[in-house]
């Protein structure tokens, strides 16, 4: 690289590994200086991203990358007779397939002959990552356009949702300049290092798409075991919980009682909180004589942080796509009040 006639090149001295870092540095400087869009513009932008993902017909292959881990999936999406239909086939590892229509989301596990069926909430499936109400994003993120990029052979506009506090991560989307479809989504940590990246490696519009293509590919699945989600809330909890250090903007979106064979004992109460872009789970379970040593950790190769501890006679686990200090603060600030009879 270019140091002029001085006789040495930075690339030769430092190696090509410096290139992405220089890009990152420039990226950080540019983003720090980029002005947030006015509220009206931001809402319009978010609305276009959402509608593009929900209303258009497209097919493509996208990759989920977390650190050194990578997994690719094929997606087909269309709106047919007003109903939004999606089929995702996971291409790596054991086969899995996801279908979604206006009523439910199904995940097929053909090796185990099981189907997981979700009803009652909208699961975010790439590239449909922005949902109404769009105002929710503007309370805790600044929206700005920070330049252009090229993904899957297409020009795209980089849109940064920069967290206004340090209780959540920054997110960046690159949206196709012609269709507004999100081609790439990156979650950054507090040092602007990418934690998770989802991106199309190839994508094309496919209008109109045959409804046949969006049906599950397992015709014999009627006999498969069905697991329904979310499971019901426990009939009666013997305790009341409270989180004193709940990060602003996060609200409870789900509560259910779950049992996993990997964690024997009483069922866990599973609470899910979200600010619209990120989420964390809180698991609560009465202890049955066992002891736990508190553990906090940042999970390598992902945006996840983890905290495990005890409050009174209950085990608490907090895990989610938020900074580690946040899950720790949540876990340590929890109070459990036993009901008196």
């Amino acid at each position: 690289m270019g140091t002029g006639k001085a006789g040495f090149s930075i690339l030769k001295v430092l190696g090509k590994g410096i290139i992405p870092v220089i890009g990152l540095l420039i990226s950080g400087v540019g983003q720090a200086g980029s002005e947030p869009e006015p509220v009206g513009e931001s809402l319009s932008l978010l609305s276009r991203l959402s509608h593009a993902a929900h209303d258009q017909s497209y097919r493509g292959t996208y990759v989920v990358q977390r650190g050194s881990e990578m997994e690719s999936s094929k997606i087909l999406h269309a709106r047919i007779h007003g109903e939004e239909l999606t089929r995702i086939e996971v291409l790596d590892g054991r086969p899995r397939e996801i279908t979604r229509d206006g009523k439910e989301t199904r995940c097929y596990y053909p090796v185990q002959h099981k189907i997981r069926i979700e009803k009652g909430y909208t699961r975010h499936l790439f590239p449909a990552l922005i949902e109404v109400p769009y105002e929710q994003y503007l309370r805790y993120y600044d929206v700005s356009q920070v330049g252009m990029n090229r993904v899957a052979g297409r020009e795209c506009r980089r849109i940064l949702l920069r967290a206004r506090d340090r209780q959540r991560f920054d997110h960046e989307f690159c949206a196709d300049v012609d269709t507004d479809l999100i081609l790439k989504a990156v979650t950054y940590d507090q040092h602007h290092e990418p934690l998770e990246t989802l991106l199309f490696t190839e994508v094309s519009e496919d209008d109109p798409m045959s409804a046949e293509l969006l049906k599950p590919t397992y015709p014999d699945s009627i006999q498969w075991k069905k697991v329904f989600f979310p499971p019901p809330v426990a009939d009666h909890l013997s305790y009341q919980w409270d989180i004193q250090a709940l990060p602003p903007g996060f609200s409870k979106i789900l509560q259910m009682s779950i049992q996993s064979t990997a964690v024997p004992g009483a069922p866990f109460e599973h609470l899910v909180f979200s600010d619209g872009l990120s989420s964390f789970s809180v698991f609560i379970r009465p202890l049955q004589g066992e002891g736990f040593r508190p553990v906090q950790a940042r999970i390598q190769s992902s945006a996840l942080s983890y905290y495990s501890g005890t409050v009174g006679q209950h085990r608490i686990v907090v895990v989610g796509e938020v900074p580690q200090e946040v899950v720790t603060a949540i876990g340590q600030s929890m109070t459990i009040t036993e009901e008196t009879h």
Binding site: S279, I299, Y306
Partner: peptide
């Protein structure tokens, strides 16, 4: 940890749950 990460990814509508194997 692995178990709770998997449970979170399944339970949170905002997590990429197709990356969770059965």
């Amino acid at each position: 940890i692995q178990t709770f990460v998997a449970l979170h990814r399944q339970g949170s509508p905002l997590s990429e749950f197709q990356t969770v194997d059965y």
